[in-house]
Nucleic acid binder design. Structure first.
Lengths: 212, 212
DNA sequence: TAGATTGTTAATCGATTAACAATC
DNA sequence: TAGATTGTTAATCGATTAACAATC
């Protein structure tokens, strides 16, 4: 019985809870309190409880949260208990790294194929996934019912690719190109250069080091 | 003359302004108003002006902001007008992709070397950067005055690596391992699986599509 | 000058924190 | 039962938005 509609800030915290709970589960921890969870993630116990209560009451007074049960709830909320298929456009450094990264399979993401413009790589495979000509992109998406389109191409073609994908029926876009994509379907960006620049900012702005 | 101390939310927006301004500059656009900037990034004009005024008054009434001047200010604020040196721990898929990615050089980030535990890659190079044994990490950092430590290794060793780096005098950590790193130096995380999971959440939660 | 757009103060909105009754 | 910890309401805090005088 969800109460407040989860805000963007809440949603961004869910994967962090999920990651932490997974580690706790691997260590054999059976239950955890909101205050422990908060301590580990730099949040207040109150905030942790508020966050979970956006989706439902998963805890138990005097006991806390059952790790396995909460994990199952989070998997369901985050939709990673179901399989999602994906294709990657761009078989360069980033496309290759994503394809070879085993972590995606753990979250039920299945990479089906890659697409590129470079004739030298078209026809080859990366980690057993075929690389097709990008001209076949729309047809492939329609025929294979692809859920997620991953953009690992140059920024000059990224918006155009997003449009093609959305039109072909893709349901979400994961964008690695350094620009703002606009689309009717949900878009998540991995702007890692932004992240690095944020780091240099922090490094040069440090005044009060909070020792830990 | 800075007014309000920039909050985390403000800082996260600065690289987005920087990216957009760069594109505008490449297109030869000379000046831009806060409302145009806001439109392109999904922010209000008010917010854009508030953001910049955390750092200083870079605009001009009746004219807006000079693109080149604002870019220079942002480069200075974000500290990317100065060179930063970096090393990468982990010469796997992610380490390789970062090393080969040309975008970092544009922001004055210079990757000096990589480190790994795998004897088969130690001694080889990636894009002309040497791969050393991770046992030499602390010595190398001390001798070469490295600014940034990039963690592209397994999560089980990530915290330990961060500790070693910080102790050896690194000034900031860019972490790709899927866990929360704690350190005395600033840490920026690229949790791209979190991002993907956020996408699957959004995909399955879509109720009102806001057409654009 | 008239028009445009900033810098900045005040108002609003939303998110975080505190508090506590409910209950395991 | 006593202790612990949740779910939830109310209070606080901070960030976003609105408004407008200043000025190019």
């Amino acid at each position: 019985m969800a109460k407040r509609k989860p805000s963007g800030a809440v949603i961004k915290r869910m994967p962090r809870y999920y990651r932490l709970l997974n580690m706790m589960n691997e260590k054999g921890i059976e239950s955890v309190s909101s205050s422990t969870l908060g301590d580990r993630l730099g949040l207040t116990a109150s905030q942790v409880r508020q966050d979970f209560n956006c989706f439902g009451g998963y805890g138990q007074q005097g006991y806390g949260y059952n790790v396995k049960k909460l994990l199952a709830e989070l998997r369901n909320i985050l939709a990673i208990d179901r399989e999602h298929t994906a294709i990657i456009v761009g078989a360069g450094n980033i496309g290759k790294a994503i394809t070879r990264f085993e972590g995606l399979a753990k979250e039920n993401i299945k990479i089906l194929a890659l697409f590129d413009v470079n004739q030298e790589v078209i026809g080859k495979t990366i980690a057993d996934r075929p690389i097709y000509d990008v001209s076949e992109l729309a047809t492939y998406i329609k025929e294979h019912n692809v859920d997620i389109g991953i953009i690992a191409a140059r920024k000059s073609v990224a918006q155009e690719l997003a449009d093609t994908m959305a039109e072909a029926g893709i349901r979400g876009i994961w964008n690695f190109a350094p620009l703002e994509i606009s689309s009717d379907v949900p878009v998540e960006n991995v702007h890692f250069v932004d992240s690095l620049i944020t780091l240099t900012y922090k490094m040069e702005t440090e005044d009060d080091n909070d020792e830990d």
